[in-house]
Amino acid sequence: MTDLATLEPSALIFPRTELPSVPVRGQRGAYPVHRIFCVGRNYADHAKEMGVEVDREAPFYFTKSPLTLVQTGATVPYPPGTGNYHYEMELVVAIGAPAYQVSVEEAPKAVFGFATGLDMTRRDLQLDARAKQRPWDFGKDFEQSAVIAPITPAAGFSPGEQIIRLTVNGAEKQNARLTDLIWSVPELVSHLSRYYHLAPGDLIYTGTPAGVGPVVAGDVIIGTVEGLAPVELTIGAAA
C-alpha cells in the first residue's frame, strides 16, 4: 500500500488546481481565497420578496467553492440547468486574521477589507430545493457564480450609511443602505467564528437587498457600494 505521507508533488496524477486570488486596491500583492461563506436573508425586504420570514434568532449561511470565484469585468455564459438566472448584489468581507469564538467587539480586528460582489443564483433550482427541504447547492454553488471586485483594505472603508446599488443595462434594480443589514459585519464574523476557525483567505458575502431578478444573455450587471470598487458582469450565451 502506498504511504500518502511520502508522496512527492511530482507523483500527482494530474496538476493541482490553483485557488483564486483577488486584487487589493493600493497594493501589489493579491488576496488568496480559502473559503466563501454566504449569508442568507440578511435584508428584511429581500426575505419578504422571497416569501419567507426573517430569522432574527441567528444568521444562517450557505457556502460556495472558491473555484466559483470570478473577477469583475468578466463575461460568463448563461449557466446550464436553469431558466431563471438571478443577480444578488452584496457587500463582501475579507478576513485577514485568525478568529475563533471572538466577541462582536473583537470581530473587526479580524477584517482585512471589503469588496463588492455578486452572488449569482439559479433561482429555480434553489426554490425547488427549498420546497423539498434539500440543500441549495445546485442553486448557489456552481461555476462562475461568485463575482468580486478588488478588495479595499479596512483602513479605507467602514460599513455604515453607504448605498448598495445594482443596475442591469443601466436600469436600477436594487437600492438600499448597508445599515439595512439585519446582522452587521461584526455580528456575522463573531457568529461564524463560533463554528469555524476563520482565517485569512475567508470571504463572507453578507446578503442581498430586495430587487433580485433574472438576467439573460447580453445583459450587463453593475453593482456599487459607495467607497468601494464597482463590480461588473456580462452574461454571455449558454455554453
Rank of each mutant, 00 (worst) to 15 (best):
L125Q: 13
H46C: 03
L118D: 05
P77R: 12
D128V: 00
A129G: 06
A171T: 15
L166I: 10
F157G: 10
T72P: 08
M120W: 00
Y100H: 15
P98W: 02
F60A: 03
L91I: 10
E49A: 08
Q126A: 11
I235F: 05
I222H: 09
I36C: 13
R177F: 09
Y61G: 01
L228I: 07
Y100F: 12
D219A: 10
E161M: 05
I204T: 02
Y205A: 01
D119C: 10
P79E: 03
L166E: 08
E88P: 02
L181A: 11
H86L: 07
G201K: 03
V231Y: 05
V231K: 10
A129N: 09
Y78S: 12
T206M: 01
E88C: 01
E232P: 06
Q126R: 04
R194E: 14
V216L: 15
T75E: 14
P230K: 00
I235P: 10
V220N: 09
A176K: 13
R28K: 15
W183V: 15
T63P: 01
Y43M: 07
I163P: 01
L198N: 02
E88L: 02
Y195H: 13
L118M: 14
H197D: 15
A47R: 04
R134A: 14
A217I: 08
V92A: 11
F114V: 09
Y100G: 04
D55L: 07
F142P: 02
A11H: 01
V212T: 12
A74P: 13
G207K: 00
D180F: 03
P23H: 13
F114Y: 15
E161G: 11
S21R: 00
A217D: 12
V39Q: 00
I148P: 04
D180A: 13
L69T: 08
V52A: 07
V54R: 03
A171Y: 02
V220M: 09
R134M: 15
P108R: 12
P20V: 06
D137W: 02
Q71K: 08
V92M: 06
I95A: 10
T17E: 11
G207A: 06
A58R: 12
E49S: 11
V22S: 04
I204A: 01
Y43A: 06
F114T: 09
H46N: 06
F157A: 11
V104P: 08
V33T: 12
P32Q: 04
L12K: 11
D45E: 15
V70I: 09
T121S: 15
G227H: 10
F60W: 13
A115Q: 00
V147K: 04
P209F: 05
D202K: 02
V92R: 01
Y87F: 13
A237S: 13
I164F: 11
R177G: 15
E8S: 15
M50H: 00
K173Y: 01
V24D: 07
G117R: 00
T116G: 09
A107Q: 07
S65V: 03
P23A: 14
Y43I: 07
V215Q: 06
T68Q: 02
H34A: 06
L166G: 08
F114A: 08
V216Y: 14
S145C: 01
P186H: 12
V111I: 15
T63F: 08
D128E: 11
T68I: 02
